[in-house]
Amino acid sequence: MATYRAHRLTGPRTFEAVALDLPDPQDLKAGHAVVRLESGVVCGSDIPRWDGSEWSGFPAAPGFPLHEAVGRVVHSRSDRLPVGSRIVGIPQHDRGVQEMFVASDEAAVVVPDDVPPAVAAIVQPLSTVVYAVERLGDVSGRSVLILGFGALGHLAAWLLRLRGAEVATVDPVPEPEAATWGSERHFDVAAAGLSGADLDRAPDIVVEIVGHGQDAVADAIRLVRPRGTVLVMGVPRPGAVLPLEEAFRRNVALVSSVGPPWREYLTKARALVELHTDFLARLITHTVPFDAAPEAYELYAQRVPGRLKVAVLA
């Protein structure tokens, strides 16, 4: 029987290469498609599962954890995902580190052939940013401080600036091209090291995209102006708590954002990627071949200047 390649997480930071039987098209559920991977891109939310800091289900199913993927449909039971079409789709159960993955038409969108594979995969993380920014309403003329200037922070700054916000960013990693992405002022310190005195005025909105803890959210509540808004995008660690009394006393509006209605927001993000393909390609700073996929996680785990998105090319 024909096989395809995959990587399986057997322990913290440890992948092994495996060969899997090709899926039987007759086992495919309605509304789903089998997709041949072109590129997968590592997300910050994958890292705590990869390194075991927030997950302990080893050994994992083959292909886990990766959810930003683009590929070509080879079998389909969906009119929305015809055979031969190229799609950005969230692999079922986040199992995207494999040459074949299954995607649902509720979490996939067809993308044009002329967008490079790794850039096309940006449609998925951008969809989450579009959804989050829309939850803020009209941001024109409002001051926004973004805590966490990784890949999602770059996308958030860019999109908020496009919508007329005044944007500043905070991250310990220096970013000489911050202005290119819409940040008018970048503070290369940890959020805990930033005080109100460092800012011209307390921001109307603070966006937290650090995640995996609770300190950054506390910093966001501390830094936002009274009656301002804190948008939480960073994935929290299980058991995280909030300084609710401080938020309450200062009349802070807390907004959380995760998991948009996928089809709608993947479609919105696709339009932006098609319009700004060359610019958004800057987000892909490192690529590795499929055989070296484990290296993509090691690269992404390093918070160093010049490292944004890491793509695996099949």
Results as ranks from 00 to 15, higher is better:
D219I: 06
R227L: 09
S53W: 13
I284F: 10
A121T: 03
V73A: 02
P25T: 15
G84S: 11
A108K: 01
R13G: 05
S257M: 05
A253F: 05
E175P: 02
R142K: 14
S143K: 09
D198M: 05
L147K: 01
G11S: 15
W158V: 13
V173A: 14
P117T: 06
I47S: 03
M100H: 14
D200R: 15
V129R: 14
N251L: 08
V206A: 07
T10V: 15
L223Y: 08
Y131H: 12
K309N: 01
V123Y: 06
A69I: 04
M233V: 00
Y131I: 00
S85N: 12
G71A: 07
L22W: 14
E106C: 04
I221T: 04
V189D: 03
E264V: 08
A61W: 06
G40D: 01
V130H: 03
D138K: 15
R222Q: 00
A69N: 04
P174T: 11
P238D: 13
S76V: 05
A301R: 09
V210A: 11
H276E: 12
P91V: 00
A132R: 11
R77C: 05
K309G: 10
P203Q: 11
I122A: 09
P305F: 13
W55A: 12
L231Q: 13
F64I: 09
R307A: 00
R282W: 14
A271R: 14
H212Q: 12
E16Y: 10
S183V: 00
V139H: 10
V144Q: 13
V144C: 10
V41S: 02
K29Y: 03
L155F: 01
F15T: 08
V34R: 14
A120W: 00
A118V: 03
V241I: 10
H75R: 11
C43D: 13
V189A: 10
Q98K: 13
V217D: 00
S257T: 03
A178V: 06
P116C: 08
R185Y: 10
D138I: 15
L136S: 11
L280P: 06
V288C: 11
R95P: 08
L280Y: 04
V73M: 02
P174W: 14
H286R: 09
V312M: 06
R95C: 06
I284H: 04
P238R: 15
E38R: 15
D79F: 15
I122R: 01
R8Y: 10
L145I: 01
D46P: 09
V111A: 03
E208C: 04
N251R: 12
R227I: 01
V102P: 10
H7Y: 04
V207K: 05
V304E: 07
A218I: 03
A121E: 10
L136C: 04
I284D: 05
M233A: 03
V119Q: 11
E245T: 11
L22Y: 14
Q302W: 04
V258R: 08
P25C: 13
